[in-house]
Amino acid sequence: MSTSLVDAKIGELGSWFKEVGRVVVALSGGVDSTVLAALGHQILGDDSLAVTAVSPSLSYEALEGVRGFAGQYSLNYLEVLTDEIDDPDYVRNAPNRCYVCKSHLFERLAPVARERNATVVVGTNVDDLGDFRPGIQAAKDYHVASPFVLCGVGKAMVRSIAHALGLEVVAEKPASACLASRIPYGVPVTIQRLSAVERLESFLHRMGHQEVRVRHHGDIARIELPPEDFQVALANRERIVSEAERLGFLYSTLDLGGFRSGSMNRVLGRKSSDEGDRQTLV
């Protein structure tokens, strides 16, 4: 992507931030929210507050990563606790789980923003609009702004902006999602299931697998890795099986489909097709 195009988009985002004046950035630790927090800090200084919601659906690795980034770049940073795990609508894990979760987040951020006379912002980008993301509707309902969407920024541009800001590690960071996304719709979200997923993914990270999803199917751990990582995983098969069994999984499988963000949403498309009822995903 050309430097001039990236610089122009940074300038457009800068103008948006300056017009808004004060922001509270929902910082999850993913690429998008991290770049947004960095931009807010660069443009607004302490008038940009990055806030991370701490709950069982955020892995300890991700939280430590956020803390490290906030400290390294001297962000104005705050952590808040969210209690979606106590909400039956979240626990039942219907397809709108993300909406419920984001609602808890935005309700927690609202008083923080009011106290600062600030606008809550999230890192949603234009590429997200074509996926099934109920949290986007929650952002609309809670009047949360999405600067990347408003300025026409997609994922590739977000990574290019990260490079331009000197955030090389962030620019190359794999896509991430909350731990609850590893549990099939309709299966209750519990701390035990979230913990098993988190610990097995952490184990695989330590083995060198950066892009990984452990999908929790009861007794089965369905492991998604990029196909180029298959040989390494198979070479360590016994170690992976042993760790999975220690965490409560009776069976460990390597998904031949490879790593796919949002793979749990495939069942929604199948049901929609079967019923002849295709939803508009926004």
Rank of each mutant, 00 (worst) to 15 (best):
M1F: 14
L5I: 13
D7E: 15
K9E: 05
E12I: 07
G14Y: 04
S15V: 10
S15E: 14
R22T: 11
V25F: 05
D32K: 01
D32Y: 01
L36D: 00
Q42H: 10
I43M: 03
D47Y: 05
V51T: 05
Y60S: 12
A62D: 14
Q72I: 03
Y73C: 01
N76R: 11
Y77D: 03
E79H: 08
D83A: 11
D83V: 12
D89Q: 11
N93H: 08
K102F: 01
K102M: 04
L105Y: 02
F106C: 01
A110G: 04
A110M: 10
R114V: 11
R116L: 11
R116Y: 05
T124M: 00
G130D: 14
D131E: 12
G135W: 00
I136D: 00
D141R: 05
D141Q: 07
D141M: 07
D141N: 10
Y142C: 00
Y142E: 08
P147S: 04
V149T: 09
G154L: 02
A156C: 04
M157C: 08
R159A: 06
S160M: 09
A162G: 01
H163I: 10
G166W: 04
L167R: 03
L167Q: 03
V169C: 00
P174I: 03
C178N: 07
L179C: 07
I183N: 01
I183F: 09
V187T: 15
S195A: 13
A196R: 15
A196S: 15
A196Y: 08
F203E: 05
G218S: 05
D219E: 14
I220M: 13
A221E: 06
I223F: 06
E224A: 08
P227E: 08
D229A: 13
F230Y: 15
V232R: 14
L234N: 11
R237P: 10
R237T: 12
E245V: 11
R246Y: 10
G248M: 05
L250P: 02
S261W: 06
G262L: 01
M264E: 13
N265I: 02
S273T: 12
S273I: 13
G276A: 08
V282K: 10
V282E: 12
V282Q: 11
